[in-house]
């Protein structure tokens, strides 16, 4: 969090200030710098999270997804091309929960689609468990923004799609009921997608992707269209599934809280061209509380990195 301190009024040399005052300048009231704020918080609430022992548990886990220097340019041969991804490299380790966050147009969905094999890079290489991604596979489950459920198929039918498509439905029929129970949709088996709520529909989409036991679940803003209450509920459900199936998940989101609440690492991306600006390890123990001081600190940091923090009000007096 030290990166923010530079150039802040609080970091001004004390001697300069005194000199200025001796020349008759009016005493200026600096705002509290994050560093100072941190020190105050540390005094009140204990040491900030960064100084605690690391809780990141995946440092030694094998690399599952390896993205190496990927370039993706839409309409590369036309004049109005879009440079969607520039020199993107990322490693996701087995069992990890990684979030891609950034403003729209930063290429986070493009990156997810490349990992899924729904799109291909102009340059660079993507491997999943050592194999080059050459197309989509059921080993990389994908949850779409609006769920993309089959409207003509029931909840049960949608969840069973993967088994049927792979021709293993006959043998693994029982797993459909298992997954319906896992996402808490008992009693809605025979409902059609438009008959269930938005949150339920996304749970169907998640169960549908998970029933194939993918190596990684890729989630493209699955909670973007949900209201705040449903979103929080679904986040907990997702964590529950993540733990229960000990799967790897990569989530695209524009919700900072969501990213912090769920992830082990947060990848911050910036647009034009889309690239990774920073990767933050979330050193918070689980379960996480959204009103925890460390949580709020981390949110402030990320918002500032995304230039979303906004102007702080000037304090009325100094302590």
């Amino acid at each position: 969090m030290s990166a923010v301190a530079e150039g802040q009024p609080g970091a001004l040399d004390k001697q300069d200030e005194l000199d200025a005052l001796s020349r008759g300048a009016k005493r200026r009231v600096p705002s509290l710098s994050p560093t100072q704020a941190e020190l105050i918080d540390a005094a009140i609430y204990g040491a900030p999270n960064a100084q605690r022992a690391s809780v990141y548990a995946f440092a030694d886990a094998p690399v599952l997804i390896d993205v190496k220097h990927v370039e993706r340019i839409y309409n590369a041969d036309s004049e109005n091309y879009t440079h969607a991804l520039h020199d993107v490299s990322l490693q996701v380790r087995e069992g990890e929960f990684v979030s891609l966050i950034g403003p729209s147009g930063c290429g986070k969905t493009t990156l997810l689609r490349l990992i899924a094999g729904l799109d291909f890079p102009e340059e660079g290489q993507l491997t999943v468990s050592g194999k080059v991604v050459a197309g989509s596979s059921y080993e990389r489950g994908y949850v779409f923004q609006q769920g993309a459920l089959y409207p003509w198929s029931t909840v049960e039918g949608n969840i069973a799609t993967g088994l049927k498509a792979r021709g293993v439905y006959g043998k693994q029929k029982h797993r459909v009921a298992e997954f319906i129970e896992m996402v808490g949709l008992q009693g809605f088996e025979k409902s059609f997608p438009h008959e269930v709520s938005g949150g339920m529909a996304q749970r169907v989409a998640i169960a549908r992707a998970l029933i194939n036991e993918p190596k990684v679940l890729l989630l493209d803003e699955p909670m973007g269209a949900l209201d705040a209450f449903t979103r929080i509920e679904l986040q907990d459900k997702l964590l529950d599934l993540w733990k229960r199936l000990s799967s790897t998940m990569v989530l695209v989101t524009h919700d900072v809280d969501e990213a912090i609440y769920l992830s082990d690492r947060i990848v911050i991306m910036t647009p034009r061209p889309g690239q990774i600006s920073e990767t933050i390890t979330v050193e918070l123990g689980r379960p996480r509380a959204r009103n925890d001081i460390d949580f709020i600190h981390l949110r402030t940091t990320i918002l500032e990195k995304l230039h979303l923090a906004g102007e702080k009000p000037e304090p009325e007096f100094r302590i």
């Binding site: 729904l118 596979s137 489950g141 993309a148 799609t161 498509a165 549908r208 194939n212």
Partner: peptide, 13 residues
Amino acid sequence: PKALYEVSETLGA
């Protein structure tokens, strides 16, 4: 919609 094809693709269809 393209998404419906892509979903089935990622499900192994």
